[in-house]
Amino acid sequence: MRVVAKFGGTSLGSGDRIERAADSIAAAVEDGHEIAVVASAMGSTTDDLLEEITFDADEADRAQIVSMGERTSVRMLKAALSARDVDATFLEPGHPDWPVVTDEYGEVDVAETRRRAREVAESLDAVVPVVTGFLAEGPDGSVTTLGRGGSDTTAVMLGKYMDADEVVIVTDVEGVMTGDPRVVEGARNVGEISVDELRNLSFRGAEVVAPSALSYKDGGLGVRVVHYQHGDLLSGGTSVEGEFENLVDMRERPLACLTVAGRAIRNRPGVFQSLSAALGESDINIDAVASGMDSVTFYVDEDEAERAENILHREVIAAEELSSVTVDSPLAVIRVTGGELPNQPGVISEIVEPVTEARINLHDIITSATSVALFVDWDDREETLELTQDLF
C-alpha cells in the first residue's frame, strides 16, 4: 500500500511527539508499505516567525524566513527515522528531487509537479522521503508558499500525483467530530464524511483539512484524518469519501418563492426558526432559503405553494413583527457545484454575466462554499442552463 502521511504542527510539537510520529512511520514501513511523509512546522513556529517580521520584508524574504519551520521539522523527523534504521531523506525547495513547483503566476505547475512527484514515487520502495509541507519552488528557483493550510495541500496533491492509495492527515483531533469537543458535550468522531460536506465545513471554520487540499482529492484516492496519539497510520479516524466535480444541474420541477416581510426580522430571535418549523411540521420541504434585512424567502415545490402560503400567513398573523407573505411562481433553479469555485476570483460574475447579457431576470442568487444557485423564471430555465453549461 502506498501512503502519503502528513504530520501537522501539533503532531510534531515536541521531541516526544516527533518520536511518536517516527514510530508510526517505521511500523508502516516494517509492514511493507511505501510511505512518503509531509511535515508541517513544529507547533506554532510559522506563526511565531511571522510575528517577528516587524520590518518591511518583501515576499521572497518572508517566504525564506517562514520556510525555516518546515525545514527544521523535516530534519528532525528524518533523524528520528534514521535512529530507527529507516532509510529516509528530507526534501526541501532547492533539492534536486524537490517535487512541488509553481509557474510565473504563483500557481502550481501541474504538469511539472506531477512529473517530479512520480519520480519521487519510483524510489518509495527503498527510501522514505520527508517533504516540507506548505512550500513550493518558483520557476526561478525561489521559495514560494501554498498559503494557509498549505501542508494539507502538499499532502493531497502529492498523494494524487504519486498514485497513492491513501493520504493520512495526522492532527490533534480524533478525525472529524460531530461538534467542537471544547464547546459541546458528547462530541464524537464521524467515521465517514463526504468531501463535499467536509469542504463546506472547512470553509465555515472547521480546522480539520484545508479546503484547498480537498480540491486535489479524486475518487480513487483515500483521505483519512487521525489523531497523533493513535499511533497507527493505517486505521482509525475519519474517512473522507468521494471527489469534487464541476456540475451544472437544473431542478426538474418548478419552485415557488414565498417571502415573509417584517420589521428588523433578523434581530428578533426565533423568527426564522418558527417559520421554517411551521413548514417542516406540515411536511413541506424547503429547497433553499435567502434572507434580507427585513425579509426571509423560502423556496418550496410549486405544488406546495398554496399550502405553504397559508401556513406562513398564520405565522404572520401571530407575530406583530411580521407584516406580510407573498408568493411568486413558477421559478427554476440552476445550480453550479464545483470544488474549485471558492478558489476562482470573480467566478460569481463569470456565471452571472452571460445570464444578464441575455436579459434574463435573476430572481435570486444563493451561494455556499462550493455552489452557486441561480433562480430564474421557469420559462427562462433552458436558456439559463445552456448559458451556464457553456462555462464549464
Rank of each mutant, 00 (worst) to 15 (best):
A256Y: 09
G15T: 13
A373C: 13
H363S: 09
T326V: 15
D380N: 07
R62Q: 13
N285P: 00
L387M: 04
T132Y: 04
G141M: 06
V223C: 02
V352F: 03
G205A: 14
V86G: 12
S194P: 04
I334T: 13
R17T: 10
R75S: 10
R188F: 02
V316P: 03
Q229I: 14
D103Q: 11
E315H: 11
H95I: 02
E382H: 04
A319G: 01
D287W: 05
A373R: 14
M157L: 15
D125S: 14
A63H: 13
V209K: 10
V86Q: 04
G43Y: 00
I311A: 03
T102R: 06
T370K: 08
A5H: 10
V195H: 01
R148D: 08
G205S: 12
D377T: 09
L135S: 04
L77D: 01
N310V: 05
I317V: 15
I360Y: 07
A126D: 13
E19R: 12
S368M: 10
S274L: 12
D172M: 11
E304Y: 10
T132V: 11
D196H: 12
E243M: 10
R115P: 01
M157A: 07
T145N: 07
A63L: 00
G242Y: 10
D48P: 00
D125A: 15
M177V: 04
E52H: 12
L331A: 07
Y299W: 12
G43P: 02
D48T: 08
V336C: 03
D48C: 00
G94A: 07
G205P: 05
D47N: 04
K160N: 15
A308S: 14
E207F: 05
S11N: 02
S142P: 14
A358H: 14
L91Y: 05
V300G: 00
G262H: 06
S239L: 12
V300S: 00
L146P: 14
L387Q: 03
N189E: 02
S323A: 13
E52Y: 06
S349K: 08
P330C: 15
G237R: 08
L214E: 01
H33S: 06
A305N: 07
E309H: 14
E197Y: 12
G191V: 07
A164Y: 13
T259F: 04
I193Q: 05
E185T: 09
M250S: 11
G175V: 13
A79V: 12
L146T: 12
I169R: 04
A121F: 05
A21F: 08
V333D: 00
P99K: 10
A21I: 06
E383G: 00
V195L: 01
E243S: 03
R20L: 06
R204H: 15
S123I: 09
S67F: 01
P129V: 13
L221F: 06
G338T: 14
V376W: 02
I265H: 04
D218N: 08
L77F: 11
G280Q: 04
M1H: 04
T370V: 14
R115E: 10
E353R: 15
V376Q: 00
S24P: 03
